[in-house]
Simulated scan of single mutants.
Amino acid sequence: MRRPALLAAGTLGLISVLAVSACQPATSDAADQPDADAPITFATTPLGDDPTAANPIDAFAEVLSEETGREVEIRDVPDYLSVVEAIRSDHVDIGIMSGFPSALAVNTGEVDALAAWPGNDDPVSTCLVLADSPVQSLEDLRGGTIAFADQASSSGYFMPVHMLHEAGLEQGTDYEPLFAGGHDGSFVALEQGQVDAACTSTLFPSMTGTDMFPFEEGETRSVGESEPMAIQMSILSRQSLDEETRTLIQDALPQVFSEENAEELGVLAEGTLGVELMLDPEPAVYQPFVDIAAIADVDLSDLG
């Protein structure tokens, strides 16, 4: 089911790049294919490099294929913004995104939200330091360097920046950010002493000793946790997706994200089980992300 990496127009490392490209017309063979017969294409960023570990992305594709009766092809892209651009440009049919990339995409006015899972009351981000670090609180990070996953990551950038702001620390003034290109890169930077802290999802510390989190229990500790998120995860689609495929995917999602598939889906199932799925969520549900993004000097509402 997996195909070679999608050739995006370079790594879209800045949200402003997407803002410009969102105003350009989309051209792709995807929109010209007979949708009812074509495979469902799915853009994603890589999740881990351990060849011995089960890949939740592959599991998602397999289960979605079983539930829809359609082949599902995976297209790897380098980062969250490239997922958004691949959907917006009609290169792929769908993508799974956390809250902030979803808000970014929806605010272009050129990407549809097929479904979304509301957040819960749990913190979504944590800032980790090594166990022997002198840092005891977020305030102790003043003057330090902090690793973030990606400039469009909810748990690895936007929510931690908001958390640090609430603690009185502003990016570029009170601390220097290091963008590691992914959560795994943040952990490497912390392990090698390149940064004073790594801000990431609260899910990862529970995966000690795995490819997802390379530390053993007790090697790191948290110095702060963020607020919850309004939306945990969204399924986004290109606007040219035919109605038959759109409905097929929406009907399949409750079966895909079910207790039966929880172990296979791993981190993708977090925050979805037992949570009522919203179909065709209105753009207004993403407004809390727009408000928090402003703290990171990103105005998502201007990306149309």
Score class of each variant (00 low, 15 high):
residue 162 H to D: 15
residue 119 G to V: 04
residue 222 S to D: 14
residue 222 S to T: 15
residue 9 A to C: 09
residue 17 V to C: 14
residue 106 V to I: 15
residue 271 G to T: 07
residue 125 S to H: 05
residue 131 A to M: 07
residue 98 S to V: 02
residue 59 A to K: 04
residue 100 F to A: 08
residue 54 A to H: 04
residue 195 V to D: 09
residue 193 G to K: 11
residue 134 P to R: 11
residue 105 A to W: 07
residue 1 M to N: 03
residue 87 I to T: 10
residue 109 G to I: 10
residue 60 F to S: 01
residue 188 V to T: 15
residue 209 G to A: 05
residue 114 L to T: 00
residue 184 D to Y: 11
residue 99 G to E: 09
residue 230 A to T: 02
residue 250 Q to M: 11
residue 203 L to M: 11
residue 153 S to M: 04
residue 248 L to C: 09
residue 129 V to I: 06
residue 87 I to Q: 02
residue 185 G to S: 13
residue 176 E to G: 12
residue 157 Y to P: 01
residue 59 A to P: 01
residue 31 A to C: 08
residue 242 D to G: 15
residue 177 P to I: 05
residue 111 V to D: 13
residue 24 Q to D: 09
residue 157 Y to K: 03
residue 84 V to A: 13
residue 52 T to Q: 06
residue 196 D to C: 12
residue 149 A to H: 00
residue 232 Q to C: 07
residue 109 G to L: 08
residue 150 D to I: 00
residue 261 N to Q: 11
residue 134 P to C: 06
residue 94 I to A: 04
residue 268 L to I: 02
residue 237 S to W: 05
residue 298 V to G: 05
residue 278 M to P: 05
residue 75 R to V: 00
residue 266 G to A: 13
residue 19 A to Q: 15
residue 220 T to F: 07
residue 62 E to M: 08
residue 114 L to Y: 00
residue 88 R to G: 09
residue 284 A to R: 07
residue 145 T to L: 06
residue 253 L to G: 10
residue 265 L to H: 09
residue 91 H to V: 03
residue 260 E to K: 14
residue 67 E to T: 12
residue 169 L to H: 07
residue 51 P to E: 06
residue 20 V to F: 14
residue 240 S to M: 11
residue 103 A to F: 03
residue 22 A to G: 04
residue 132 D to M: 02
residue 77 V to Y: 00
residue 265 L to V: 08
residue 37 D to S: 14
residue 243 E to V: 08
residue 231 I to W: 03
residue 85 E to N: 04
residue 186 S to M: 07
residue 60 F to M: 04
residue 232 Q to F: 11
residue 111 V to L: 13
residue 81 L to M: 10
residue 244 E to H: 11
residue 227 E to G: 10
residue 62 E to L: 12
residue 302 D to K: 15
residue 65 S to P: 10
residue 131 A to V: 04
residue 135 V to Q: 10
residue 214 P to M: 01
residue 245 T to C: 06
residue 138 L to G: 03
residue 115 A to P: 10
residue 182 G to N: 14
residue 28 S to L: 05
residue 185 G to E: 12
residue 303 L to N: 05
residue 55 N to P: 00
residue 138 L to D: 03
residue 100 F to N: 10
residue 278 M to H: 09
residue 45 T to V: 02
residue 264 E to V: 01
residue 233 M to Y: 05
residue 301 S to R: 12
residue 158 F to C: 02
residue 61 A to T: 01
residue 119 G to W: 03
residue 64 L to D: 07
residue 120 N to G: 13
residue 199 C to F: 05
residue 258 S to M: 10
residue 289 F to K: 03
residue 167 A to Q: 10
residue 27 T to S: 14
residue 218 G to M: 02
residue 236 L to F: 11
residue 64 L to W: 10
residue 286 Y to T: 02
residue 113 A to D: 01
residue 163 M to F: 08
residue 155 S to E: 05
residue 89 S to C: 08
residue 197 A to I: 07
residue 218 G to S: 02
residue 140 D to C: 06
residue 132 D to G: 06
residue 221 R to T: 00
residue 183 H to N: 14
residue 24 Q to E: 13
residue 67 E to L: 13
residue 65 S to T: 09
residue 51 P to H: 04
residue 45 T to A: 01
residue 4 P to T: 00
residue 32 D to C: 09
residue 153 S to L: 05
residue 111 V to F: 09
residue 163 M to Y: 09
residue 66 E to Y: 10
residue 95 G to E: 02
residue 99 G to Y: 03
residue 33 Q to N: 11
